Simulated scan of single mutants.
Amino acid sequence: MRLYGDPVLRRKARPLTATDTLTVPGFGPQTVREVADTMMETMFEQRGVGLAAPQIGLGVRLFVAVEYEDDEEEGGDDDTPLKSRVLRDFVMINPVIAVLNKKKDKSYQEGCLSIPGIYEEGVPRARQIAVRYTDLDGQERTIEAEDYLARVFQHEIDHLDGVLFLDRLPAEVTDDHRKELLKIQQHSKNFLANLSSWEKEQHLKERL
């Protein structure tokens, strides 16, 4: 999981196709379906509701998300298997949003798996949207969503454009979390240093 402070979270992700072969840093080449399956499992392990490819270090326009039976409390009881509460799951390639209701909603609390432990209300999101995307079979689809699910989709698509939910709040909100964010950044820095060492070792092994 890539954390706040990792440059990949600030880059605009590139388009892809369902037949592409992807290489997640730290792993070997995989199909888009394999990556999506791993992302879904990672999301469940972290007790999340969505996960975008940049959050695992992959700069492509792909995200996974689910709708739970009790979507406003997606974290729920840590002992409750999240998979048992899934109503629908989504894998979206190259998603594009169309706003159907421009009225903004600020009533939900948002958090982010890449910014653990920090939650804030007041993030303005469109109440109703349509998302056009490609599925894992390469078929183009469109889905309409409103309220909480619309918020989830907007949050994940923001990740594909290098935008974090704190960016949509006043600067003083981020300032209030400065100490926590610095700790997260340090964890991110340590992870990237270890990943770089691993990649160098792999490169040397390939040359032998």
Results as ranks from 00 to 15, higher is better:
125 R>N: 05
115 I>K: 03
56 I>W: 12
135 D>R: 04
82 L>W: 06
73 E>T: 14
84 S>T: 14
61 R>K: 10
112 C>E: 01
151 R>K: 14
117 G>Y: 05
100 L>Q: 08
118 I>C: 13
67 E>S: 12
127 R>E: 15
76 G>P: 06
149 L>A: 07
81 P>A: 13
88 R>S: 13
100 L>M: 13
84 S>G: 07
90 F>P: 02
55 Q>P: 08
59 G>D: 15
82 L>V: 15
115 I>A: 04
112 C>V: 09
70 D>A: 09
133 Y>G: 03
83 K>Q: 14
139 Q>T: 02
106 K>M: 14
131 V>F: 00
71 D>S: 10
72 E>T: 08
102 K>M: 06
95 P>F: 02
95 P>R: 00
125 R>W: 00
71 D>G: 14
127 R>V: 10
65 A>V: 06
78 D>L: 13
143 I>Q: 06
79 D>T: 15
149 L>I: 05
75 G>K: 11
103 K>E: 14
137 D>E: 06
83 K>H: 13
71 D>R: 11
85 R>D: 07
81 P>Q: 13
123 V>T: 14
116 P>S: 09
126 A>G: 04
154 Q>D: 10
69 E>I: 09
146 E>T: 12
115 I>Y: 04
96 V>K: 07
135 D>T: 02
88 R>W: 10
83 K>G: 02
62 L>K: 12
105 D>W: 04
136 L>H: 05
91 V>E: 03
84 S>I: 05
71 D>E: 12
113 L>Q: 08
144 E>M: 06
107 S>F: 09
107 S>Q: 08
113 L>E: 04
115 I>L: 10
56 I>D: 08
69 E>G: 11
138 G>C: 01
104 K>W: 00
113 L>K: 03
145 A>P: 01
107 S>L: 13
128 Q>M: 04
86 V>G: 01
148 Y>C: 07
105 D>F: 04
135 D>S: 07
154 Q>W: 02
120 E>L: 08
116 P>V: 11
72 E>M: 14
85 R>C: 07
109 Q>C: 01
123 V>E: 01
148 Y>P: 05
137 D>C: 00
105 D>N: 15
56 I>V: 15
54 P>A: 07
132 R>P: 02
133 Y>M: 01
121 E>F: 07
86 V>W: 00
78 D>S: 13
99 V>W: 05
92 M>N: 05
143 I>V: 12
94 N>I: 04
134 T>Q: 05
120 E>C: 07
93 I>Q: 00
91 V>Q: 03
129 I>T: 05
55 Q>A: 11
61 R>I: 06
100 L>N: 09
115 I>F: 11
153 F>Q: 03
104 K>G: 00
121 E>W: 10
148 Y>W: 06
106 K>D: 12
111 G>H: 12
93 I>W: 02
92 M>L: 14
55 Q>D: 08
129 I>H: 04
73 E>W: 13
62 L>G: 03
106 K>W: 11
132 R>M: 05
119 Y>H: 12
122 G>D: 10
126 A>N: 11
59 G>S: 15
146 E>D: 14
80 T>W: 11
84 S>L: 13
103 K>T: 09
58 L>I: 04
